[in-house]
């Protein structure tokens, strides 16, 4: 039944996630930029999206933590890092600037590929290049600690 855990469940989750982005309007850069434009005609919709997502995710993750392992897999891959370090702040800062320039973050960008918009395709290629650039640069540095752990850290 590996096909359920490796294909069907993630596909279903991708469909639900994409539906959420589409229904909320967050696939549209204009809608996202209207939230970020607090000095213009401000649209608080994105804050409602986050609040609603967190209202579901927070108790949901607590429920997941009470189980020794996921329903369909052998182990949880909870993120292990918990410190606020320079790469976190610098990376988040860079991401925010790019997000503010066009109003696309990775989820909506990948979902929007379905429209075959040339601008979106160029954005995703540039985003993939940025990721590869980072990962190649990281690989050339001394090995870092693994980023996942078998057991929850809390």
């Amino acid at each position: 039944m590996e096909i359920i855990s490796r294909i069907i469940a993630p596909l279903l989750c991708g469909l639900i996630f994409g539906t959420g982005l589409l229904v909320s309007g967050m696939v549209q850069p204009t809608k996202v930029l209207a939230f970020l434009d607090i000095f213009g005609a401000w649209d608080p919709s994105l804050a409602v999206v986050m609040a609603a997502a967190l209202a579901v995710a927070t108790p949901g993750f607590m429920l997941a933590r009470q189980r020794a392992r996921p329903v369909l897999a052998g182990q949880y891959f909870w993120p292990r890092k918990s410190d606020i370090d320079a790469p976190l702040v610098l990376g988040a800062g860079m991401f925010g600037v790019g997000w503010g320039l066009v109003g696309l973050c990775p989820g909506p960008a990948l979902e929007s590929l379905a429209t075959l918009s040339p601008g979106v395709i160029v954005f995703v290629v540039a985003m993939a290049s940025g990721m590869l650039l980072h990962d190649t640069w990281q690989a050339s540095r001394p090995p870092l600690q693994p980023q996942v752990s078998i057991n929850p850290d809390r």
Binding site: I16, A52, A64
Partner: peptide, 25 residues
């Protein structure tokens, strides 16, 4: 401002995140 569609969409995003963790880790 579209609070209703934002809330429905947001809840779906949260549900997806929970299901992916709960089912596949």
């Amino acid at each position: 401002f579209t609070p209703v569609s934002a809330a429905i969409g947001g809840a779906l995003i949260g549900l997806s995140a929970v299901l992916l963790m709960l089912l596949t880790g």
